[in-house]
């Protein structure tokens, strides 16, 4: 697996795709990752389904519910990723709510990530302060680092604090919303992208929430290092086959 920072330092706008593990079918993880890699996405965010995903809109909620009904477990995901380890070069990051990781065991979680070659995780409901106080040592022992989120409401002080602790990129939430917003980006969002990019942070900036097509990708990537798309891809998978993934990716990149 390539290093995440190697990919982030490449000189083009990065495109990352999120998908919910265990959706549409329990064992689709490997074919989705292979299809995304074949479509040249830069890195992949693998979502651990959760019964109560607070930061997610209806699309990811529904896919999570389906994945759980399919019989998803955290251990199964690690098994699937382990089997795929030598066949996949694109960096993977894991996204999961903290309760799922807590029940699996934080140390065991970090160690299994390390085992597979995963370097970064997104845990939206594990705030910076609690991470530093209670969990940082365990994560660092296994060379795992969390990716933190910032929003249009984040203060400059908060953003600098997050930049300081980040190892790769900051996840820039595009607007005040849960995932899967469909409004598109207006002046407020564009000004915010511009404001953050002018802060000259050491971390890369990747934008997510509400990126769904070529237009929103271009807008959000203009002042940042790239974008993450989640809900739009989940919706694509509802209507199309996994092996059609390249069509979705090409349309985002306007190839």
């Amino acid at each position: 697996m390539k290093k995440l920072n190697t990919v982030l330092n490449q000189n083009h706008k990065k495109l990352s795709i999120y998908f919910t593990a265990g959706f549409p079918e329990l064992n689709d993880t490997s074919s989705i990752i292979k299809a995304l890699e074949a479509s040249h996405v830069d890195f992949i965010e693998v979502g651990l389904p959760y019964s109560d995903p607070l930061a997610d809109g209806p699309t990811i909620q529904e896919s999570s519910k389906k994945a759980l009904e399919n019989g998803f477990t955290t251990q199964l995901l690690f098994q699937q990723l382990h089997d795929l380890k030598n066949q996949c070069d694109v960096p993977l990051i894991l996204m999961g709510y903290f309760n799922v990781i807590l029940q699996f065991g934080v140390e065991k979680f970090c160690s299994q990530c390390q085992n597979i070659g995963i370097e970064a995780v997104i845990i939206p409901d594990l705030p910076l302060e609690i991470y530093e106080k209670d969990y940082r040592k365990i994560f660092e022992k296994h060379n795992i680092h969390p990716i933190f989120l910032i929003t249009p409401q984040s203060s400059e002080k908060r953003i600098r604090q997050i930049d300081e602790i980040s190892h790769s990129f900051i996840y820039m939430v595009s607007s005040a919303s849960t995932t899967g917003g469909t409004k598109g980006f207006g002046d407020n969002e564009l000004k915010y992208f511009d404001r953050i990019s002018k802060m000259q942070l050491k971390s890369k900036l990747i934008t997510g929430f509400g990126v769904k097509d070529n237009k929103t990708f271009e807008q959000a990537a203009a002042n940042t290092d790239g974008c993450i798309i989640g809900s739009a891809y989940i919706n694509f998978l509802k209507e199309n086959k996994i092996n059609q993934t390249a069509e979705f990716i090409n349309q985002i990149r306007n190839y």
Binding site: Y50, D52, T74, N99, V100, I101, Q103, F104, D125
Partner: peptide
């Protein structure tokens, strides 16, 4: 219940061993 996170609070809650709230 077992120790976990629900609605932003660390507390005792009813959940599966995988951390899905029941």
């Amino acid at each position: 219940g077992t120790l976990g996170i629900i609605h932003g609070s660390k507390t005792l809650l009813m959940q599966t061993k995988d951390g899905q709230i029941t």
